[in-house]
Design a protein around this nucleic acid. Structure first.
Length: 576
RNA sequence: GAUUGAUUAGCUCAGCCGGUAGAGCACUUGCCUUUUAAGCAAGGGGUCCGGGGUUCGAAUCCCCGAUCAAUCACCA
C-alpha cells in the first residue's frame, strides 16, 4: 500500500482498516442497522427508579466524537442525527468469552474519533451522574480515514472550535459534524419554508415550477448568467426572476400561484449576495398591494412564531419585533423625513441637483427613478430597523407595477425593510398591456443610455397580457435573507449549505508516469514530484547538481532506502 | 476592483531585536479505572502558503505571486 502524501494520522487509520479486514470485520457493511431510538430520546425518557422497556434494549448508531479508553472500561461519545450520548464499554460485557479481541483490539486500537458504529445495550446513570448507554455489543458501520477537528466543550465554553470560514464552507460536512449550531440554522431554514408553504396551501394557492433556462431573462433588473443550448443552437439565460412566468399562469386562470425558486445573478459576491439564491414569489388574482401588505406581515409574523414561539427575534445587538402590523411609510415621506427634501413632482434635473446637495454621486445614465432610488438607498434605507413597509415608488423604477390609483407619477408598490435591508418587494401588478408595452420601451431607452440592468422586452409576456390578466398582486421575498434575519446569521454563507467559492486548487495532480515514460524509475519519479518537479519541462530546466542533492536528501530524510543515482544519471534524465 | 490583515503540526494558536521551530488538544506506546473539555507517564509528527531578494544566518526584514477574511466599491 502506498501511503506517501498522507499524514501520520491518515496512515494509522488506513492501517487500522487493514487490520480490521484481517480480523474478518467489514468496516463498510451493507446490511441495515436496526436503530430503535435516538440519543436525545434516551436522555429525555430516562428515569433512575424505573427503567422502561425500550431503554433496556437500546439500538443506536452514530459517529464517535470522543474516546476515553482505559484498561477494561472505556467511554466514548456517540453523535446521531439528533444529539449525543455517552457510551460505556466494559471489557467483560463486550467479550464474555476468552477472546477479548473486540475490546482490546477493535475498540481500543482500531476505532477512532469519527468512525461510525452501531451499539446495542441499556441505559444507566454513571457515578458521575451522566445518563449513558451500557454497551453489550457494537458493530463497525463505517471507518473514517480522515481525522476530524476536535471541538471540546465544557459548561458552555468551547475549546479549539472549528472556525475557519473557508474550511467551514468548503467542507460543510465537517462543519455540520463538529458544530451543532450549524445544523440548527439549516433546520430552521427548512422550517421557514415549510411554514410559508403551509400558509399558502391553506389559502388554496398552487405551488408551481417555471423555467430556469429562459431565452429572455425578465422580471428583474440584473445581469444574467448566459449558457448555450446545443440542439436549438441558441443562447439561454439562467433566470434572474420568475415573475413573468408566474403572471402568465395568472392569465391562464389560476387564482394564486407561488414558487420557491433559485434565481441566478451574475454580480458581486459578499456577505449578503450569492450568485444563486432562493426567492419566494407569489401572485394572487383580484388582490392589490394593500391586501398583499397584510398577507406579507401575517406570513412573516407566523414564521417568527413558528421558529421562536415569539415575535421578538435577536439580530446582532438588536431585537427585531415581527408583531403585526408593521409600520407603513411612503417613499416620499421617508425621503422628506431623512433629507428634508420634498421630491414630489420634481424633474430629473431638479432631482440631480438634490443629489448633488446631498453628496450623492450621479451619472448620465440615471433616470428619475434611479436618482430617487439612490437618495433612498443612501439616506433612508438604513434607518428602518424594525419591519417597515416603504410604499408608493416612482413609476420609473417599477416597470412591472400598476400606476398608483390616486397619485400621479407613483406606482402601487411596497418593499419591506428590516434591519436597514430590503427583504420583500411587492406590487399591484400592471395588467394594462398597452401601458406595459410603453414601460418596456422606457426600459429600452434606459438601456440605450447605458443602464446595463434595464429590462428586455418580452413579447410573449405582452401577448399574454393582451389576452387579459386579472388584476392581481405579487410579492417576492428573499429566503436567504429572511433566514439570516430569523437565525441571527451575519452572513449569507451561513444560511447556504454550499455557498459559492472559488474552485479549490488541487495539489499533487501530477502523475509519476510522465517521468516513467522518459525512462526514470517509478520510485525516483515519485521523489521528483515530491521535491517539486511536477512536469517534464520543470525537469529540463532544473539544475542537475541541485536536483541530485535534493532527491538524494529526500531519500535519506524519508528513509526510502533507495539506491541513490549518480550525478551523471540525473544529468541524463535532464537531457532526455 | 481598492485598502487592511492573515497563512506555522490533524485542529486551535504562540513564536520578541534575524541566531537550534513551540504549546494545548489529537496521534503512538505503557499503566490505570463508572471517566467528565483535561487520569498518569513517555514518545512521534513541520514544504513555517509559493517564488525571489537582503544577510554569515530568514518563520521573522524587503519585493512579487496565491488563497482567505474584514471593510469599502459594485450589486432592485
Amino acid at each position: 500500500m502506498d501511503y506517501t502524501g498522507l499524514s501520520e494520522q491518515e496512515v494509522l487509520r488506513r492501517e487500522a482498516l487493514a487490520k480490521m479486514k484481517e480480523l474478518g470485520i467489514d468496516a463498510y457493511p451493507a446490511s441495515e442497522y436496526p436503530v430503535n431510538i435516538y440519543t436525545t430520546d434516551i436522555l429525555e425518557q430516562f428515569k433512575d427508579e424505573d427503567l422502561s422497556e425500550n431503554l433496556k434494549n437500546i439500538c443506536i448508531s452514530g459517529r464517535i466524537m470522543s474516546r476515553r479508553i482505559m484498561g477494561n472500561a472505556s467511554f466514548t461519545e456517540l453523535q446521531d442525527s439528533k444529539g449525543r450520548i455517552q457510551l460505556y464499554f466494559k471489557r467483560d460485557d463486550i467479550c464474555p468469552e476468552e477472546d477479548k479481541t473486540m475490546y482490546n483490539v477493535v475498540l481500543k486500537k482500531l476505532l477512532d474519533i469519527g468512525d461510525i458504529i452501531g451499539v446495542k445495550g441499556y441505559a444507566f446513570r454513571t457515578q458521575m451522574g451522566e445518563i449513558s448507554v451500557h454497551v453489550t455489543e457494537f458493530t463497525v458501520l463505517s471507518k473514517s480515514l480522515r481525522p476530524l477537528p476536535i471541538v471540546k466543550e465544557k459548561d458552555g465554553q468551547v475549546y479549539d472550535a472549528f472556525t475557519d470560514p473557508e474550511m467551514r464552507y468548503r467542507q460543510r460536512y465537517v462543519d455540520l459534524i463538529v458544530n451543532p449550531q450549524v445544523r440548527d440554522t439549516f433546520i430552521k431554514r427548512t422550517k421557514i419554508i415549510n411554514t410559508m408553504r403551509e400558509f399558502f396551501n391553506e389559502q388554496g394557492y398552487l405551488e408551481v415550477e417555471t423555467p430556469i433556462l429562459q431565452s429572455i431573462p425578465g422580471g428583474a433588473a440584473a445581469r444574467p448568467f448566459i449558457t448555450h443550448h446545443n440542439a436549438l443552437n441558441i443562447p439561454l439565460y439562467l433566470r434572474i426572476a420568475n415573475e413573468l412566468y408566474l403572471k402568465r399562469l395568472i392569465v391562464g386562470g389560476f387564482e394564486g400561484v407561488y414558487e420557491f425558486a433559485k434565481d441566478f445573478r451574475n454580480e458581486g459576491m459578499d456577505r449578503t449576495h450569492n450568485p444563486e439564491f432562493t426567492v419566494l414569489e407569489i401572485y394572487v388574482a383580484y388582490k392589490d398591494y394593500k391586501w398583499m401588505m397584510n398577507f406579507t406581515e401575517e406570513m412573516i409574523e407566523r414564521v417568527a412564531i413558528a421558529l421562536h414561539g415569539t415575535t421578538e427575534v435577536q439580530l446582532g445587538d438588536k431585537v427585531i419585533d415581527y408583531k403585526r402590523p408593521f409600520k407603513r411609510v411612503t417613499m416620499y415621506d421617508a425621503i422628506k423625513e431623512h433629507t428634508g427634501f420634498d421630491i414630489s413632482g420634481k424633474s430629473e434635473d431638479e432631482l440631480r441637483q438634490i443629489c448633488k446637495e446631498l453628496n450623492i454621486e450621479t451619472d448620465k445614465s440615471m433616470g428619475k427613478g434611479k436618482l430617487i432610488d439612490e437618495i433612498f438607498g443612501e439616506k433612508c434605507e438604513h434607518h428602518y430597523i424594525q419591519p417597515t413597509f416603504i410604499i408608493d415608488y416612482p413609476v420609473e423604477m417599477s416597470p412591472l407595477t400598476k400606476k398608483h390609483r390616486s397619485v400621479e407619477g407613483l406606482t402601487e408598490r411596497f418593499e419591506l425593510m428590516i434591519n436597514g435591508k430590503e427583504l420583500a418587494n411587492a406590487y399591484s401588478e400592471l395588467n394594462d398591456p398597452i401601458d406595459q408595452r410603453e414601460r418596456f420601451e422606457e426600459q429600452m431607452k434606459l438601456s440605450a443610455k447605458g443602464d446595463d440592468e434595464a429590462m428586455f422586452i418580452d413579447q410573449d409576456f405582452l401577448r399574454a397580457l393582451e389576452y387579459g390578466m386579472p388584476p392581481n398582486s405579487g410579492m417576492g421575498i428573499g429566503i436567504d435573507r429572511l433566514t439570516m434575519f430569523m437565525t441571527n446569521s451575519p452572513s449569507i454563507q451561513d444560511v447556504l449549505f454550499f455557498p459559492q467559492m472559488r474552485p479549490e486548487k488541487r495539489l499533487e495532480t501530477v502523475d509519476e508516469s510522465i517521468f516513467v515514460e522518459i525512462g526514470i524509475d517509478q520510485e525516483w519519479a515519485k521523489v521528483l514530484i515530491k521535491t517539486g518537479i511536477e512536469s517534464v519541462k520543470a525537469l529540463k530546466e532544473a539544475n542537475p547538481n541541485k536536483l541530485h542533492q535534493s532527491i538524494c536528501g529526500y531519500n535519506k530524510k524519508n528513509k526510502l532506502g533507495l539506491t541513490n543515482p549518480s550525478q551523471d544519471d540525473v544529468k541524463s534524465w535532464i537531457e532526455k
